[in-house]
Design a binder for these strands. Structure first.
Lengths: 359, 359
DNA sequence: AGTAAAGTAGGAAACGTTTCCGAAAATTAA
DNA sequence: TTAATTTTCGGAAACGTTTCCTACTTTACT
């Protein structure tokens, strides 16, 4: 790190920032020769004001560079026009899409979003909803990962509207929040697909059992019985976990002929390591991930995946939240689910498997 | 999209949220039998209060579930403990890392961050700075992309502290903001590397000339003269632009033997298309990108790249901003630069090039 | 023209804090 | 003890808006 010369254009010590006098609504009123209530009406288009004086006031505002104090407004009208978005980690491949979608729809409705990374750990998730009141926001969108037991309880107790982006867990019916997620288990699609293309020794490579458990359940439920040696629970959802999973499966005397990976990062890791090891995908082992992020199309082979509809889920979650805010929390809580979509790519096409005997 | 049954646990019409009475500092004071000033002292650890009464008050607060109204506090103390982070698009590969870094360091100092996507377009970048006062924030971190001409002017005019995460443009010395970026042109490293491994027809594949122009300048300046046919200006920084760039270079009678891509996304696009076209990387054409995102290690061949130190840059930008906020804008503006790092991978290793004549 | 209705405007009371300032209580010094 | 400090505390004035309520103008209608 290099510290280039400092810029001395601010050497006067205390800067403009500190000395510049704030112009308030009262200043505007005085200068325009009207009452402060009138100025308020002008800036809020609240009506009850003649076009003439309104124009005058607007001009004075322009001249003086008046900007209403947001804190004062919030104090008075009891809303901040901000919502909080709590996600596990913005660096996880699918999250940016969600964050973007939330921010865009919020902006369309005049809302800003404050970003919170929970690191997907239980304590932080709980803390976020417990302290949401201190957050200066009108509502909370949370995408849980750890799903601590008391999470729902806390959500039900808080007075600020919350909307849940729900992947990975079936939630109680009585949660006092709008919930949007997926209609069928993403994993179901993967398993059905792998079975359909004729794979018989299907493995699961995933995160710890207690995270996103629905994805593992889909595995269990799609199989008459599970061979424990074909299940690899990693530590997280990372590329490295994928590498390790591949190593593990490779070490087996009897390798799987297909792997259902908990997400694309893991799938990509697996495919990469297999390439190093000389395992052919999909000929020897088919690999399918979940999330359908851009990078599945960039590896070779390209990787089959399931789209979890992140942007649509996020957009709806945001709209439901804003609606609830608008209606002061009234109305039955919504439960909406999108249909995940399987996208088949090279890593799991049906191939004629050549038996050595036939050659 | 499926709308599962609505949850009727909120059918009473207007909900708890709307009816629950807010408990204020005054309620606490009354119940504790003290003055409201004293309660304020208790929650702010401002001293001038006996341990005994403080304990009492804290307990009452606990009982009543009192949470100070942030808007009122902000109005009074004139700060919101929030900063804004304006980036082009959170979905761009390097941004999440930056956003994460900003959020984490902000949190350490008790600040929250509100996310803004400017889409990298000039109008939105300007608007963000111009309207920052309406944003309820104590400071702004902006990562410009379009760098509209009046941006600096606006920054210099605003009274809220700003910190610039600066990739892609040399900024005037007189910018009234802390600026953190890279010490040497990232592109310089790429070009030197390509030249060193013996490439002679080096091409540039990038975004429009006016975006991140420093990266193109590095190209120009590293070459005795540039062959215009070896320069491809795409529309953006995307994977697709990479595909198109590859097509373009492939169409040349005389292909380049190396490509310096404006970023990793483009580089990945190029490598992918080349693979389809049967062009060997790096044997026929070496490819190097910039950003060093995870995905460069996931393609085959793995792609050489330059780390732009996103997390460190972002962390420092945040710390400088918070420092300036703390000091009310006083102090000389800092200019700090990190050293970018070249990471050589398969896509640009030196290879013995086999001439067909020798075989 | 006179009256009723509608349209405009301003004063002042909130909103829920923090903080200045003075008073009361507790502590120390003599 | 008494006086001089030092602590501890409460009242009340901000902070900058929105909005209720009242009063004054217009306009519309007979």
């Amino acid at each position: 790190m290099v510290r280039i010369a400092e810029n001395d254009s601010n050497k006067e010590g205390t800067s403009l920032l500190a000395t510049k006098k704030k112009v308030t609504i009262e200043d505007v009123a005085k200068k325009a020769g009207v009452g402060i209530a009138t100025v308020s009406r002008a800036i809020n288009n609240s009506g009850g004001i003649s076009p003439k004086t309104k124009a005058l006031i607007l001009q004075v505002i322009e001249e003086m560079g008046f900007i209403p104090n947001t804190s004062a407004q919030s104090l008075k009208v009891r809303q901040t026009n901000q919502i909080a978005l709590a996600v596990p980690d913005i660096r996880n491949a699918i999250i940016p899409e969600i964050a973007w979608s939330v921010e865009q729809t919020a902006k369309q409705h005049g809302y800003r979003v404050v970003q919170i990374n929970t690191s997907g750990n239980a304590r932080t998730e709980l803390e976020t909803v417990r302290e949401v009141k201190k957050l200066h926001v009108d509502g909370l969108i949370i995408m849980p990962l750890a799903y601590p037991k008391t999470l729902v309880e806390l959500i039900n107790k808080t007075t600020v509207p919350v909307s849940i982006i729900n992947y990975g867990k079936k939630l109680d019916d009585n949660v006092k929040a709008d919930i949007v997620g997926l209609a069928s288990q993403e994993g179901r699609l993967v398993m059905e697909h792998l079975i359909k293309i004729g794979r018989t020794r299907i493995a699961y490579a995933g995160a710890p059992k207690n995270k996103i458990e629905e994805r593992y359940f889909a595995y269990e439920q799609s199989l008459p019985q599970v061979d424990p040696s074909l299940v690899y629970f990693g530590e997280d959802f990372s590329f490295e976990t994928g590498l390790r999973a591949a190593d593990y499966f490779y070490s087996l005397k009897n390798m799987p002929d297909a792997i259902y990976a908990v997400n694309d990062m893991v799938a990509i890791g697996i495919v990469n390591r297999f390439k190093e090891l000389g395992v052919r995908v999909p000929e020897d082992v088919a690999v399918v991930g979940i999330d359908n992020n851009l990078w599945t199309t960039v590896t070779s082979p390209q990787i089959s995946s399931v789209s979890i509809m992140g942007d649509e889920v996020a957009r709806l979650a945001t709209e439901l939240l804003l609606k609830r805010i608008r209606e002061h929390g009234a109305g039955a809580y919504e439960r909406v689910q999108f249909e995940p979509r399987l996208i088949v790519r090279e890593s799991s096409v049906a191939v004629i498997r050549q038996s050595p005997l036939i050659t």
